[in-house]
Amino acid sequence: MKKFITKRFLQMMLVWVLVSIISFSVIFFAPGDPLYMYMTPEATGRKLTEEELQAMRESLGLDGTAVEQYTSWATKMVQGNWGISLTTKEPVLNEILKKLPATIGLMGASLILSLIVAIPLGLIAGTHKNSWIDNIISAITYVGVSMPAFWLGIMLIIVFSMQLGWLPSSGMRTIGVVSNWDVIKHGILPAIVLSLNNMAVFVRYIRSNTITQMEEEYVQTALSKGIGKRGIMYGHVLKNCMLPVITTVGSRFGTLVTGSFIVESVFAWPGLGTLGMSSINNRDYPMVMGITMFSCTILLLGNFLADLLYGIADPRIKIGKE
């Protein structure tokens, strides 16, 4: 078990380092000096002098060769010094941590929602293969994977906020109102939009998993013991079906991260995505790097935790410890 965890952890670190190099080089090799906008009067109110620019380069770690820049940037990252935001002049990490709860809340709610919906639907579809109910569920999942999330967001806003007036269309709180219910009301539509794609993927995965598990020979053995259909479903098939779902959930963290960028833009949800989009639009270079790395970390951590959980849950993997 220990060996398994260590191996997974090392793999994660390797990917993390490589991702940091890629994201670093995207910005490094991109044409145009990131300080470009600070040289224009619009950004600072006056033109910066050459000395000021040099100082700024140094403070941002933008001097020296690519390797030097990368190592100095990476060392600072590890130490928790993610630089100062160019727009708010606040430490990047602070800004990110400030916005984090809103995004984590949205992602968590959407993940839970998608699983709550997907597990029963997937099991029903899988056990009633090719029946009318399976066809309806399949149709829903096809629409789910094909739906552009932002468009669904707009349509839901038109129907539920504008036409029916049931739910707010943007933000996280009504100004002047402090209540959890208010936050929940604001979160319903974004959470639904963010869940749809993952939900559809989970349903399809659980369905096909159920079908293959039902065809396994151990099901015949269980039948031959005299166990009824329900007993087989709950006592045997369910566990074997759900185990690999853990890994699938882990692999969907990427969609969750990019999805939250889109959904937060549509609903003006004050989270990491909105911060990310505005910092990209403002060329807030340290902030962009910080958010990119933070998003990758969430994603990798999600994968890692899923692997870990799978390792604990599946008895076949424990053999690795011996």
Partner: peptide, 13 residues
């Protein structure tokens, strides 16, 4: 394992 859309947006910025 990288959030692809985000990387593309960063690139296009």
């Amino acid at each position: 394992s990288v959030p692809s859309l985000l990387m593309i947006i960063v690139f296009f910025s």
